[in-house]
Computed example of a mutant assay.
Amino acid sequence: MGEAIGRQRFGVFIRIDGVPAAVGLAEVGSVPHGMELPVMGAVVAGTVVWHADHNHQVKIKLDEWDRPE
């Protein structure tokens, strides 16, 4: 799980719980069909599909998210 911390046309950046040095990216193509990208502050859950140890980049396929209250 994590939190959406940045949003661009190409995807959303995610702070990953328990891994402060890593930044996740969920690209538009990894969002379930018919759903909008999560908004800033949304709690998200997904599957890691790729990562690079040397620069702590992580690509994520989103499964679900909630709107912040």
Rank of each mutant, 00 (worst) to 15 (best):
M1E: 06
M1K: 11
M1Q: 10
G2K: 05
E3L: 08
E3C: 10
A4L: 05
A4C: 15
A4N: 05
I5N: 05
I5E: 01
G6P: 02
G6E: 12
R7D: 10
R7N: 07
R7M: 12
F10V: 11
F10G: 03
G11E: 01
G11M: 05
G11N: 03
F13I: 00
F13G: 01
I14M: 05
I14G: 05
R15T: 06
R15S: 15
R15P: 06
I16Y: 08
I16S: 04
I16L: 15
D17K: 09
G18K: 03
G18M: 07
G18E: 14
G18T: 10
G18N: 11
V19G: 00
V19M: 13
V19E: 01
P20R: 00
P20K: 01
A21W: 11
A21G: 00
A21H: 02
A22C: 13
A22M: 08
V23R: 09
V23Y: 02
V23F: 03
V23E: 10
G24V: 06
L25E: 03
L25H: 02
L25P: 02
L25W: 01
E27S: 08
E27I: 03
E27F: 06
V28C: 01
V28F: 10
S30L: 10
S30P: 00
S30A: 14
S30V: 01
V31W: 06
H33N: 08
G34H: 07
G34N: 07
G34K: 06
M35S: 13
M35L: 13
M35R: 15
M35V: 00
M35A: 08
E36R: 12
E36T: 09
E36N: 10
E36Q: 10
E36Y: 04
L37K: 05
V39T: 13
V39R: 12
V39F: 05
V39I: 12
M40W: 03
M40H: 11
G41K: 01
G41N: 04
G41S: 09
G41P: 09
G41A: 11
A42L: 04
A42H: 06
A42E: 03
V43C: 02
V43Y: 01
V44P: 01
G46S: 07
V48L: 08
V48M: 07
V49A: 11
W50N: 12
W50T: 07
H51L: 09
H51T: 10
H51S: 14
A52E: 15
A52S: 15
A52R: 13
A52G: 14
D53T: 12
D53P: 02
H54T: 11
N55V: 06
N55F: 07
N55H: 14
H56Y: 13
H56K: 04
Q57N: 13
Q57R: 15
Q57I: 12
V58G: 02
K59R: 15
K59C: 03
K59Y: 05
K59S: 15
K59A: 14
K61D: 09
K61V: 14
K61L: 14
L62N: 03
D63L: 13
D63R: 12
E64C: 09
W65A: 02
D66T: 11
R67F: 00
R67L: 05
R67P: 07
R67N: 13
P68V: 07
P68C: 11
E69W: 04
E69A: 12
E69R: 13
